[in-house]
Design a binder for these strands. Structure first.
Lengths: 217, 217
DNA sequence: TGACTGATAACTGTCGACAGTTGACAATAT
DNA sequence: ATATTGTCAACTGTCGACAGTTATCAGTCA
């Protein structure tokens, strides 16, 4: 009953499992990860767990300290700024590419996500984070740049880690939806420069919002 | 004689070691990596080697296939284009940031590298790849964006892997040095938009050069 | 002669155990 | 009472061995 790589290797499954533990805050920032304890809790050996930990460390979701194991990083304002410089570089490029390459179907998908967001919001519910991610994902699909998409996914994970237990206020949500619609307009007009500029303004706003919630805590 | 984490863990050393094997072409593209053989050749156990392999895979220097191990990826033209879309996004952003943030010392360093390149070239020697890397590194330092710098390093590695045994013709080298000097001018003038644009043109050229050398092989 | 099928060898995936290091606690001296 | 030092427990780093999977090759049948 040792190996069962029926569909996905044990180490591969463990990566997703531990990733979820980190992103949901079940392993809170600053907390050290005990290999033997977590391994027995997951019912696996330390080998695959170690591989999973190393992998998540390469994604930036864990920090490795020699002989002292891994822990979830807790970010300060400087880290937020540095991370958003990377995110802005990637997503602005993606927005420009999307404006140049998008097909009609991809444009329709963007409008679909936007419409669902506004419907949700006007029905009194909040703007779910799920739909925000869906929008950025749809834009990434339209950009059709697999290497950029890869990196954006990794950066988005780290951003999620930052905002894991932060509540977003509704004024900012409204502004975000407006940004999204402006982006759709730029992409529809095939205006690469404008799409990049709008994305930049959007992410600047999101970053400042995050900074405002982190600093005075 | 099992563990000797005197300064760097065995797995950490192995990462650098295998990275060198891949980048120098000692393990050529397409070649499969045999864990037991390589482990015994390095005089270590399979555990640390596996961790090193996984790490390099996360850097894009190896590709993992379930139950079939790892191999060095060999890139086609599409992969070159996709990779350069990422590189352009990152390095253009870095160039713009460098134009905004550079100090006098950082500017002097850029000019120093450029001067050394031209001296080397005019002395009849070729434009060493080492100096090209040094220039991009100096620009990255001037940008002072640690997260972007991290990713640029990883992308540059993958580019090195592509051009591992390609000879660069001297006309292109001359053009590259001109691009570099234009970049310095833009950075010196603190013109972020121009710096980004020049970098984009530079990398477009480098990409096309690479594509020209790969296609007819 | 060619295609199919079963055995076999090579390799990856996983596990349990040992060795080395680190931080904390307690005992002692000042 | 405080600082110092020796001991120890907990944890990470590493190893060798076993289990499962995949690809190759020989043998058989049409």
């Amino acid at each position: 009953m040792t190996a069962q790589p029926l569909h996905l290797s044990l180490a591969g499954q463990t990566v997703d499992l531990v990733r979820e533990l980190v992103l949901t805050g079940e392993i809170p920032p600053g907390e050290r990860v005990n290999e033997v304890e977590l391994a027995s809790r997951l019912g696996i050996s330390r080998g695959p767990l170690r591989e999973a930990i190393r992998h998540l460390a390469s994604e930036g979701l864990l920090v490795l300290v020699p002989n002292r194991g891994a822990h979830v990083p807790k970010a300060d304002a400087d880290e937020v700024r540095a991370l958003f410089e990377l995110r802005i570089a990637l997503e602005c490029a993606a927005a420009s590419l999307a404006a140049q390459r998008r097909t009609g179907a991809e444009l329709a998908r963007l409008r679909e996500v936007s419409a669902e967001s506004r419907a949700n919001y006007q029905a009194g519910r909040r703007f779910p984070h799920r739909l925000d991610l869906a929008f950025h994902q749809a834009l990434l699909d339209a950009a059709r740049s697999p290497r950029i998409a890869e990196q954006v996914r990794l950066v988005q994970q780290r951003v999620i880690l930052l905002r894991s237990r932060l509540n977003t206020d509704s004024a900012h949500q409204f502004a975000s939806m407006d940004d999204h619609d402006e982006l759709i307009a730029a992409v529809a007009a095939a205006d690469a420069a404008l799409a990049g500029a709008v994305m930049r303004r959007h992410l600047d706003r999101v970053r400042d919002q995050l900074l405002g919630e982190i600093a005075p805590s």
